[in-house]
Amino acid sequence: MVPGAFNYHRPDTVDGVIGLLGEWGDDARVIAGGHSLIPVMKQRLSDISHLIDLGGVGSLKGIGVDGGTVTIGAMTTQHELISSDALAAAAPIIREASLQIADPQVRYVGTIGGNVANGDPANDMPGLMQTLDATYHLAGPNGARTVAARDFYEAAYFTAREDDEILTAVSFAATGGGYAYEKQKRKIGDYATAAAGVLLSMDGGSCTAASVALTNLSDTPVYCEAAVDILVGSSVDDATISAAVKAAVDVSDPVADTRGPVDFKKYVAGVIVKKAIQSAKARA
C-alpha cells in the first residue's frame, strides 16, 4: 500500500501556503500531522499531486494565553498541548482529552489544526471545540476570517473552510469551574465508541454555566444545547442529570460499525455523558 507520485512543497509562511493552494487548486492538499491524509493517499482514495507541508510555517505553532483568551496555533501537536502547564491552568479539559487520543507516538505528530480541520467526526478535538465554544481562524486569498466551531461542521469531511483556505489557529476563552472529557474506546489507538466533553460552573448549589458536546456520535460533532438548557439553573441533581443525558442522547445519531450497533452506541453515549456531567460537577 503505497501512494502515487506527488510533488512536495514546504513553504515557510502562511502566504506561501495560500499562494501554492491558489496555484494548484484541486490538485493540492495541505498536510499537518498526516494521520488522516497519509492513509488516504496510501489507499489511493484521493488523487493528490501537490502536497503542501505546513510543518515549515513557524507562525502556525504555539500556545498563547492572554487576558483570559487561549490561542493555539494549528500546527501545535497534541503532545505540546499535554505538556503546556499554562494551557492546563487555562483549560484543563484540553489535557484530559488529549491524553485520550491514540498513543504517544501519534500525539508527537498529530496536530490540533489537522484534527479539527479535517472534519472527521471520529476525531476528539472537534467535539472538544464545541464544548469550549471555540473560534476557528482561517486564512485565504481574501485575507483572514473567523468561524465559530459550532458553525464549522456541515457533514462528515465537509466544513465551512473553503478549498483555498487553511485553518491557522483556534481560540477560546479560558475555562473556570468543572470539566470532564470521557471516552470509551476498544483499545489504545482507537477512535471513540462514544465520547463527551462537559464544562460546568456551580455557584451556591446552582449551575451557572454549562456546555455539553459529543464525539463520534453523529456525522459531525454535536453540541447539545437542550442538555445545556436543562443543566443551567438547576442544582444538577440526579433527576436533572438524567434529563440532560436523555436530551444529549436524543440529538446523537450514531451509525452502526465494527464498534457496535446503534442501540448500543446510544446507550453507551448516555453512560458516558452521565459520567462526564458527574465528574465535571465533582470538580466544579
Binding site: 470509551q184 476498544r186 465508541t193 464498534r259 457496535g260 448500543f264 446507550y267 453507551v268
Partner: peptide, 11 residues
C-alpha cells in the same frame, strides 16, 4: 466478547 456483544448479552 467485545464491548457491544457483552452489552447485548446484558441487554
Amino acid at each position: 466478547h467485545d464491548h457491544w456483544r457483552i452489552w447485548k448479552t446484558a441487554e
